[in-house]
Amino acid sequence: MKTFFKETDELTKVVDVDSSLEVDKLNHDLHYMEQKHIKPFLSADFYDSLITKYHNDSASAEELALIELAQVASANLGVWKFISKSTASKGNTGIRVANTDKQKSAYPWQHKEMKNGYRDTGFYYVDQVLKYLEDNKNSFQQWTDSAAYADFNSHFIGSTTEFDKIVYIDESRRLFTRMKPTMEEIELFRIKPMLGEALFNEILEQKKDNTLTDQNKSLLDKIQRAVANLTVANSIFKLSLQLSEEGVLVLSFDAFEKATVADLQMLEKLQSEYEEKGEGYIQKIVDEVKEINGETDTGTYEFNNSGKRIVKF
């Protein structure tokens, strides 16, 4: 499994770890985090091309500059994933924690602080990768021709930095990523109906090409502010919850990062929210089918028995 690293000294140049930590020991974690958090933003073809060129020493100067940023992101995210198992060994007698008279395992709070540091740095540099690509997109046609680029430009707020200028989120890509589905729904249910499809698409296209008219630039500023604030307002309740195979969990922030099952009131609120969103999409399906069939009345759809109405944001 190839990653953005060939040798151990490349790793220790970009992340604060002991020089005795070999890149081979981290390789699985580096590969996993690159696949999950870097490759989707580059596109599969562009990512694979960069990896191949780097290992073949055929990357251009612009590509090498991009790879250097990706290395910092990959290394920090890889160490973040690795660190939980770094103090434990697995063998025939089970999992053991290494403690000696001279060295002892870190306290839980130290462990958590260290992990958070690697995590935050890693995601910060994911944003730097995206910023470098956007600033130098004329040099990366393989990226601009990809579905990843189209997705990057399919929203009025495309990056953590843009969001942070309106609502302070400490440039947290993890937080931005968690709120992105809500942001997409705000755009779809609130902004698009107000603008109409033509103007909605026109502003997005002009934003992507950096050709905004004065009027659309003024509109975009207001749209971004509306979207950012409504996104936060509709995310507040959900951010402390995690949907998992064990059920809906309430996240805790102590040194042990505990999670407990959500109480009934939270579950009912969450269930109602998702049900209403589903109803909103039902409304859009009905309206679109009516349009296809040439019908002009697009009144609110209701289930026969439920009386549910279109979702409001």
Rank of each mutant, 00 (worst) to 15 (best):
residue 120 D to M: 05
residue 120 D to I: 03
residue 121 T to Q: 12
residue 121 T to D: 10
residue 121 T to G: 01
residue 121 T to W: 01
residue 123 F to P: 01
residue 123 F to L: 09
residue 124 Y to E: 13
residue 126 V to P: 03
residue 126 V to L: 03
residue 126 V to E: 02
residue 127 D to R: 09
residue 127 D to L: 03
residue 128 Q to E: 15
residue 129 V to R: 03
residue 129 V to N: 02
residue 130 L to W: 06
residue 131 K to Y: 05
residue 131 K to I: 10
residue 132 Y to D: 02
residue 133 L to N: 10
residue 135 D to T: 14
residue 135 D to W: 08
residue 136 N to Y: 10
residue 136 N to C: 09
residue 137 K to G: 04
residue 137 K to N: 14
residue 138 N to Y: 09
residue 139 S to I: 01
residue 139 S to Y: 12
residue 140 F to S: 01
residue 140 F to I: 08
residue 140 F to P: 00
residue 141 Q to H: 11
residue 141 Q to P: 05
residue 141 Q to R: 12
residue 141 Q to K: 15
residue 143 W to I: 02
residue 143 W to S: 00
residue 144 T to Y: 10
residue 144 T to N: 05
residue 144 T to V: 13
residue 145 D to H: 13
residue 145 D to E: 15
residue 146 S to H: 07
residue 146 S to C: 10
residue 146 S to T: 11
residue 147 A to K: 14
residue 147 A to P: 01
residue 148 A to S: 14
residue 148 A to W: 04
residue 148 A to K: 04
residue 148 A to L: 08
residue 149 Y to M: 02
residue 149 Y to W: 10
residue 149 Y to D: 03
residue 149 Y to R: 03
residue 150 A to Y: 04
residue 150 A to H: 09
residue 151 D to Q: 15
residue 151 D to A: 15
residue 153 N to P: 02
residue 154 S to Y: 08
residue 155 H to F: 10
residue 155 H to I: 01
residue 156 F to N: 03
residue 157 I to A: 06
residue 157 I to C: 06
residue 158 G to S: 12
residue 159 S to F: 06
residue 160 T to M: 08
residue 161 T to H: 12
residue 161 T to W: 04
residue 162 E to M: 12
residue 162 E to H: 02
residue 162 E to G: 04
residue 165 K to P: 00
residue 167 V to T: 11
residue 167 V to C: 10
residue 168 Y to E: 12
residue 168 Y to A: 12
residue 169 I to Q: 06
residue 169 I to D: 02
residue 169 I to F: 08
residue 171 E to K: 15
residue 172 S to H: 07
residue 172 S to A: 11
residue 173 R to D: 00
residue 173 R to C: 00
residue 174 R to W: 05
residue 175 L to T: 12
